[in-house]
Design a protein around this nucleic acid. Structure first.
Lengths: 127, 127
DNA sequence: AATTATATGTAAGATTCCGATATATGCAAC
DNA sequence: GTTGCATATATCGGAATCTTACATATAATT
């Protein structure tokens, strides 16, 4: 019964990941790198912030992360935490720009969708 | 160099088509069926109303139209106009409900995306 | 005569995503 | 003490979706 959501998710996954990383500004403390997140953390953050409306599957997330890394938008640091390996992802400068670009692209797209889906038909008369 | 848009279009095509047909309420005149549109007309309408921001390709549109027809959401009427065959699509009652459902699903999705992409990271204590 | 706009459609291929599966640790319950 | 759950990363097969290019055809314009 996963309601809708996943259907529209197509094409927005990269944007979500990039934006999440972009808005993690050095959580203070001893962490030197800004915007570090690991895969599992990303899925949890998305689930929590959207109140379960959007859920990222691992089968979709990890390939995207790997691809973004290949494209030079992310860099990884593997650390051992509690005896387990954890892989942190953070944005490169290029990735940061890509994040901003993607978000603004998506805003434009949403605006266009609004004119399609939420415009009453009578406004279509342009004279 | 296709400017963004198309990237996010994934998964929204059906919604767009259903909504366009749903909001065409018997354009008056002699037309008996409400919401009749043909494929080419749909692409033009989307292009015009989004000022070129969103462009549907025929290779994507026609398969979607055929599938929606198979699913019983659309019915077709083929007529000859100016010596050419033209295929009109209109919503069935089921298709009408599907249109409303899809649009409201998409609104929920957009709301979720807003909380992800447009939420200021003020929680991160900007000391 | 050639091009553009109109009009519908198919086929090959790439991309993207989901679900299942595999592996492995820490912890709480029982 | 082992079963199950949360944490954690990752791959694979398959399905769905979209793009590009192609095929066909008429009417109007140049």
């Amino acid at each position: 019964m996963d309601t809708s959501s996943n259907e529209f998710l197509r094409g927005t996954l990269k944007t979500i990941v990039l934006k999440l990383l972009a808005e993690q500004p050095a959580t203070g403390e001893a962490k030197s790198r800004p915007g570090r997140m690991y895969g599992y953390e990303i899925t949890q953050a998305v689930k929590e912030r959207t109140k379960g409306e959007i859920t990222l599957s691992f089968g979709a997330l990890y390939p995207v992360l790997h691809k973004l890394e290949q494209e030079g938008l992310l860099i990884t640091e593997t650390e051992e935490v509690d005896g387990r390996l954890r892989k942190y992802y953070s944005l490169t400068p290029t990735g940061n720009k890509a994040a901003e670009q993607k978000v603004s692209d998506f805003e434009r797209f949403m605006e266009a969708m609004r004119t399609l889906l939420l415009t009453p038909p009578q406004l279509a008369t342009g004279h």
